[in-house]
Design a protein around this nucleic acid. Structure first.
Length: 418
RNA sequence: CGGGCUGUAGUAUACCGGUAGUACAAGUGCUUUGGGAGCAUUUAGACUGGGUUCAAUUCCCAGCAGCCCGACCA
């Protein structure tokens, strides 16, 4: 994509009403636009990141047989009354219309997915089944904060699994731990993300969170680096440590961001809707459920928080909006012609490239923008690079680049994106 | 939801009971081009409502919004 055509522009100044690094950088870079506290629109660059994250998650969900759906955001009040959450959930948006009817704006979808399943499945032969979606969620956060990390409207992947036995549920649940690990590794924060024991609510001993260690985290966890297991402060006590076989002396207290959470729901939501199956003997039993969430915007913000340096964002290849940022320095005709040629070749080779073809911009401005926007590779075409018969290629994380030919450039990038 | 702070242009600010000035940013033109360059020029502002007052952006009250601490967080 030609940067001269991109309608968003970078900002030199940090927004006044944001202190979090993720929001500051994403807004300055023109990835997102803040509408109000905790509500952001995705702009072209941000949407490209979101789509990449989405695809990673989708692939991983499909790998365990997840079936993708898209459920409604408007949800019937009666369903929420059935589970006791119409009054019981503080952050539920209740939306009225002109005839005094109210609906819930979905903060999660147990109240929708269970009745849907009930309509189609009833035999033990129908199970197990797992259903997921990637969709906007609404929660009336009394205090939205930390930029993309805690919003009132946010995009979440929520998966629900349905089982005929606790053993089957647990097998699936264990499997999901691995799947979640893959997702965070693929998103570039695997080395900072730990399986964390957290409160399971009233129905289960624990739930499991995936916590990414960064100073910007909202949660406090106690991390055992050897076993790569952590305990959330909310369940941190001697008894819990003992049951998990953790040595208190070896735990490190740290701040972390919860990027994913999985729950053993048992019959909490299947019971109110009477979601049952008939077994081989013709006996009816209530279905057991698990649920598995990941906030995509939060994941995007976490990647920024965890990996950015003082110059800007550092995108991992896997979620970067573009693999390469190609800069043409100076408005000299030979440079422009050569840069265009390089750009066309890259596009033709299928490389995702952002081409800074903006005229009248100083070299410094282009460099600063490239650092801020954080593509994994930066290529420079300039009078200087032409004199050396090549293109200057540099990784975002490197100080100095090297001169390569167009063929070499294509080779390096194809290897990277393979 | 409890507590705190703050609302003047995109940002940072100044002055003021008599309707607002500066810098940076942004736009335009020209010049520049290896780390946010220069000159010229243009655009742009008192959160909303009520009260006090001859007069309110300024003082008072309320609302709203934003941020921070805490609580909450399937």
């Amino acid at each position: 994509m030609r940067q001269s055509k991109l309608f968003t522009k970078t900002k030199k100044e940090a927004p006044a009403d944001e202190v979090s690094k993720n929001a500051e950088l994403l807004i300055r870079g023109g990835f997102v636009h803040k509408e109000m506290a905790g509500v952001y629109s995705y702009l072209p660059l941000g949407l490209r990141v979101l789509r990449k994250i989405e695809n990673i998650i989708r692939e991983e969900m499909n790998s365990v047989g997840g079936q993708e759906v898209l459920m409604s955001s408007f949800q019937p009040k009666e369903n929420w009354e059935k589970t006791g959450r119409w009054e019981g959930m503080d952050d539920l948006y209740k939306v009225g219309d002109s005839s005094d009817r109210f609906v819930a704006l979905g903060p999660t979808h147990e109240e929708i997915v269970v009745p849907i399943l009930k309509n189609y499945v009833s035999s033990y032969k129908d199970f197990p089944v797992a259903v997921y979606q990637i969709q906007n969620k609404f929660r009336m956060e009394l205090r939205a904060k930390s930029g993309m990390l805690r919003g009132r409207e946010f995009i979440m992947k929520d998966m629900y699994s349905f089982h005929t036995s606790q053993e089957d549920l647990e097998k699936f649940y264990e499997n999901m731990k691995g799947v979640y690990k893959n997702i965070f590794s693929r998103a570039g924060i695997g080395h900072l993300t730990y399986l964390t024991f957290a409160s399971g609510g009233t129905f289960s001993k624990y739930s499991h969170e995936f916590q990414t260690v960064t100073g910007a985290g909202e949660d406090t966890i106690y991390l055992d680096e050897n076993s790569a297991i952590a305990v959330n402060k909310e369940v941190y006590n001697d008894e819990v440590l003992q049951s998990l076989g953790l040595d208190k002396a070896k735990l490190k207290e740290t701040k972390a961001i919860e990027v994913g959470n999985i729950f053993d729901l048992k019959t909490k939501y299947s019971q109110p809707f009477d979601l049952t199956f008939t077994d081989e003997k013709g006996e009816k039993h209530v279905i057991l459920m698990g649920c598995y969430g990941i906030g995509l915007g939060r994941l995007m913000g976490t990647v920024v928080e965890a990996l950015a340096d003082d110059k800007g964002i550092v995108w991992p290849q896997s979620v970067a909006p573009f693999t390469l940022h190609l800069l043409a320095l100076g408005d000299d005709e030979t440079v422009t012609a050569e840069a265009n040629k390089v750009y066309e070749s890259l596009v033709k080779a299928g490389v995702e490239v952002l081409f800074d073809d903006r005229a009248g911009m100083s070299a410094g401005e282009k460099f600063s923008d490239a650092d801020l926007l954080g593509m994994p590779f930066r290529a420079v075409v300039s009078a200087r690079s032409l004199k050396e018969n090549g293109i200057e290629l540099k990784k975002r994380t490197e100080e100095k680049g090297k001169i390569v030919t167009l063929d070499e450039l294509l080779k390096i990038l194809n290897e990277k994106s393979a």
